[in-house]
């Protein structure tokens, strides 16, 4: 959101390609939280997600000279997504291992939830959402996470997964459709909205 991250990235990449580790550290700082959270939502385990993020940065550093003039962001996400797929293959099954009930160093900018009962309910909602994501086919899961967890634009996602925009659009929509079906099985936690009238887009 700050000043032109792409231009900043390009300058840092240029310096890092000359062997400037400090410049690369800046890139790591910039991308560590989004990359880690992408991996976490993909594979479900904090340790594995941290390993994936670490390995992604290592590979990026080592292969930085192959990046040429391309943007760093989709490239680093692509490396990490590929590592997630490697992880799935190693596990021989495409299922995340959610670390339910474990405390985490959680960061949130959301509103305070003062009431323990509400907090428990929020925790339950999060668990169901995580389960719904974990139930997705990995291609759909990737598209959904890149969009709704990481906030990447469709074009960026297309670059990450090396697919046409139409595929991105379709995967995101299908993933959301599947998740929605799952959430609607818990009407007490995810009330069905009456209409979109009042929250409607730009009216």
């Amino acid at each position: 959101m700050a000043n032109s991250p792409i231009a900043d990235d390009a300058a840092l990449v240029a310096r890092a390609r000359e062997g400037d580790r400090e410049a690369f550290t800046e890139l790591v700082m910039h991308y560590q939280v989004p990359l880690y959270n992408m991996a976490l939502r993909m594979v479900g385990s904090r340790d594995d997600a941290a390993d994936i993020a670490q390995e992604a940065f290592l590979r990026a550093w080592e292969k930085l000279r192959t990046l040429k003039g391309n943007p760093f962001k989709p490239w680093i996400f692509q490396i990490a997504v590929n590592l997630c797929y490697d992880h799935f293959r190693r596990r021989k099954r495409v299922a995340a291992m959610p670390e339910e009930g474990q405390e985490a160093h959680v960061v949130s900018l959301g509103l305070p939830v003062p009431d323990p009962a509400e907090r428990a309910e929020a925790g339950e909602r999060a668990r169901i959402v995580r389960d719904s994501i974990n139930g997705l086919d990995p291609d759909l899961r990737t598209a959904l996470i890149l969009r709704d967890v990481n906030g990447l634009a469709y074009e960026e996602i297309a670059a990450v997964i090396r697919a046409p925009l139409g595929t991105v659009k379709s995967r995101i929509a299908r993933a959301r459709g599947h998740v929605q079906e799952r959430l609607l099985m818990f009407p007490e936690l995810f009330a069905r909205p009456v209409d979109d009238q009042e929250q409607q887009h730009e009216r």
Partner: peptide, 22 residues
């Protein structure tokens, strides 16, 4: 509206800080 709610639910997942420094 339902789709928007679904998206909000996914976006509401907490962002976690990495457990280590990379």
């Amino acid at each position: 509206a339902a789709l928007r709610q679904t998206v909000s639910a996914v976006q509401a997942l907490p962002t976690e800080a990495p457990p280590r420094v990379f």
